[in-house]
Amino acid sequence: MASKTDLRRFPGFLTVTIVCLVVLYAPLIVVAVYSFNASTSITKWGGTSLAWYVDVFTGPEAPKFQQAAINSLVIAITAAIAATIIATLASVAMTRAGRFRGKTLSFALISLPLMVPEVVTAVASLVFFTAIGFTSGLTTILIAHIVFCIPFAYLPISARMQSIPDLYEQAAMDLYATPREAFKLVLLPLMTPGILSGFLLAFIISLDDFLITNFVKGAGVETLPTAIFGSVKQGIKPNIMAISTLMLIVSVIFVSLSWLIGRTGQDKNQKT
C-alpha cells in the first residue's frame, strides 16, 4: 500500500499513543484489582477474594443489576443505531444537498442537545413529558437518549463526509446511478470509518448517562448508571468494581467478535 512509510510516521506519535492508552487503561487496572478485594472498602486492601463476583450473580441485589445491565445495553445499542441513522441522513443534507433554507438553523438544532446543560435537559424533559402525558418508562429513556446521542454521532460523520469529495458519487451518477444508489453503493462504504466513530461515541455516551436517565425514567426502571449511583452513597463497594470488570469483559468479547467478523468482510473487500 504505502510507498514511503516515512511520510506516515512522525517522531513521538507512537509515544503519545502509548501515553494515551496508559491514561485510558490505568484506572481500569484499579477497578479490576479491587474487584478481588476481600474487604468492603475500595481504599483498604483486605486480601484476595472472589466473593464479590459470587455476590454479583447470587447476592440479594443480583436481579436488579442484571436487569439494569440488560436495559442499559439494549437502550445504548438502540439509541446509538437510531441516532447514527438520523445523523447520517442529516450529514448528507448538510454536506451534499447544496444550500437550502434553514441550513444554519438545522445545524444549530442538531448541536442543541450538546449545548444544553444536562440537568436542564433532565428537568425540562421530565416537566415536558409529564405535561404531554407521556408515561415515564423505558420509552422515555430511549427517546431522551436518541436525542442527546444525535450530535455525538453527527459531528464525526459530517467531518468524514466533508473530507470526501463528491467526485465518486458524481462519477457513479454519470454512469446512470440514481442518487439513492450513489448514496448506498458509493458514499456509504466510503463513510464507514465516520459512521463507526459516530456510532461508538453515541453508544458510550448513552451507556454512561445518569442525570437525564434518572429524571425521565419510570418508577422502578433502572439502567446500570442509575443502579450504580444508587449503590454508592455509602461508598463504592467492590461489587460495583466486579460488575464493572464484567462489563469490560463483555465489551472485549463483543469487540473481538465484531473484529473477527469485520476482518473477514474487509479482507474480501480488499481483494475486489
Binding site: 484506572p27 481500569l28 477497578v31 461515541l201 458510550i204 454508592v232 462489563m247 469490560l248 463483555v250 465489551s251
Partner: peptide
Amino acid sequence: ITIPYWVNLLIR
C-alpha cells in the same frame, strides 16, 4: 479507545 468507556464514568 472506547472499551474503557464501558465502565461507568463515576467509577472511572
